[in-house]
Amino acid sequence: MAAMVALVAVTAAVVLAGGAARAQLIEGFYSHSCPQAEKIIKDYVMEHVPHAPGIPATLIRTHFHDCFVRGCDASVLLNATGGKKDAEKDAAPNLTLRGFGFIDRIKAILEKECPGVVSCADILALAARDSVNFIGGPFWSVPTGRRDGTVSIKQEALDNIPAPTFNFTQLLQSFQNKSLNLADLVWLSGAHTIGIAHCNSFSKRLYNFTGRGGPGDADPSLDKFYAATLRRNKCKTPTDNTTIAEMDPGSFKTFDLDYYRGVLKHRGLFQSDAALITDAAAKADILTVVNGPPELFFKVFAGSMVKLGAIEVKTGSEGEIRKHCALVNKH
């Protein structure tokens, strides 16, 4: 009961903080300038996600990675110029991002409908929400009015995106740097209930945790039977960079609580997943949603997504409205 009271307080704080943070954004921002914008995005998502079931996971991950670097300004969508590989999308954490073409196609449709009006940053935020909701996940408010950034730097992605090897202290500091709190860390980690990961992002936990090497050098915080299954069926060598594993085995296409249940059983893929139960308050929040009504997780996740989408947004005369999401406009 005490945990539930604490969570209600946290949820209230999320809503209040989200409301304050998104003051520069408004719902229905395009109601006059491009009244069909949000419908066009939703319709495209509904038509194409059934044929690309991995899109919801990649879009929400892309949105998260975008917001953690220079705020939610679609800088992660920009290509490097001059033959260099120095944009955000060229950084190691972003090399496995997909869905850039998906966003580009939505942008092209909107440019025909309302040229130069709808930002790539808003398209990404809305498409991430709509795709997650389409597969049965929560729906959350997406106030709009974001403008697109014109700078994308590889090193900034490396410096700001939380690594899968982070411990709890590092994770919390990374989130606090973006005005997110412990509760946001716990709830946004819940996005790992969908999607996949490449072996090289967690194989050290299977083969070389302390540096000695071999299957006997597995991370002791990882369930040994799960580790053995991963070595046998997925990451069969320490150097496998291509094989993928489900973040939430058994329901990686379903937005549910199984990710948290796996973490509690020491079956989270990343060290950062395992880190969540090394902190008493974070573990208490996880236990509360796992043992609570199903709609509770959806509610708190939605609140944290609103806060995420408001990080350091550009509005008004800041930035620009890109004509092509991968390129800055020519002036």
Score class of each variant (00 low, 15 high):
Met1Thr: 10
Met1Asn: 05
Ala13Cys: 13
Ala17Trp: 05
Ala21Phe: 02
Arg22Glu: 07
Gln24Trp: 06
Ile26Met: 05
Ser31Val: 14
His32Pro: 00
His32Thr: 15
His32Lys: 15
Cys34Met: 09
Gln36Thr: 15
Ile40Met: 13
Ile40Tyr: 00
Ile41Gln: 06
Lys42Trp: 00
Val45Ala: 05
Met46Ser: 12
Glu47Ala: 14
Gly54Tyr: 06
Pro56Trp: 01
Pro56Leu: 05
Pro56Glu: 00
Ala57His: 11
Leu59Ser: 08
Leu59His: 06
Arg61Trp: 09
His63Tyr: 10
Phe64Pro: 09
His65Ala: 12
His65Gly: 06
Val69Lys: 03
Arg70Gly: 07
Gly71Gln: 01
Ala74Gln: 02
Ala74Glu: 02
Leu77Ala: 06
Leu78Ala: 13
Gly82Phe: 02
Lys85Asn: 15
Lys85Pro: 07
Asp86Trp: 06
Asp86Ala: 15
Asp90Trp: 05
Ala92Lys: 12
Asn94Tyr: 00
Phe100Gly: 10
Leu110Asp: 03
Gly116His: 04
Val118Pro: 04
Ser119Ile: 10
Ala121Lys: 10
Ile123Lys: 00
Leu126Asn: 04
Ala127His: 11
Asp130Ser: 07
Ser131Ala: 14
Gly136Asn: 09
Gly136Ala: 10
Pro138Ser: 02
Pro143Phe: 07
Gly145Thr: 02
Arg147Ser: 09
Lys154His: 13
Leu158Ala: 09
Asp159Ala: 15
Asn160Tyr: 08
Ala163Ile: 04
Phe166Gln: 05
Leu171Ala: 05
Leu172Lys: 12
Phe175Asn: 02
Phe175Val: 11
Asn181Gly: 15
Ala183Leu: 11
Leu188Ser: 02
Leu188Asp: 00
Ala191Phe: 07
His198Ala: 11
Phe202Met: 03
Tyr207Cys: 12
Arg212Phe: 10
Gly214Ser: 01
Asp217Thr: 03
Ala218Glu: 10
Phe225Glu: 13
Tyr226Gly: 01
Leu230Cys: 01
Thr237Ala: 07
Pro238Cys: 05
Asn241His: 15
Thr242Ile: 13
Ile244Leu: 15
Ala245Cys: 07
Glu246Ala: 14
Met247Cys: 14
Gly250His: 08
Thr254Gln: 10
Thr254Glu: 09
Asp256Tyr: 04
Leu257Asp: 11
Tyr260Gln: 09
Arg261Phe: 04
Val263Trp: 09
Leu264Glu: 03
Phe270Pro: 02
Phe270Gln: 02
Ser272Phe: 04
Ala281Ser: 15
Ala282Arg: 01
Ala284Ile: 02
Val290Gln: 03
Asn291Ile: 04
Gly292Asp: 03
Glu295Arg: 13
Phe298Lys: 12
Phe301Arg: 08
Ala302His: 01
Glu320Arg: 13
Glu320Ala: 11
Leu327Gly: 02
Asn329Cys: 03
His331Leu: 13
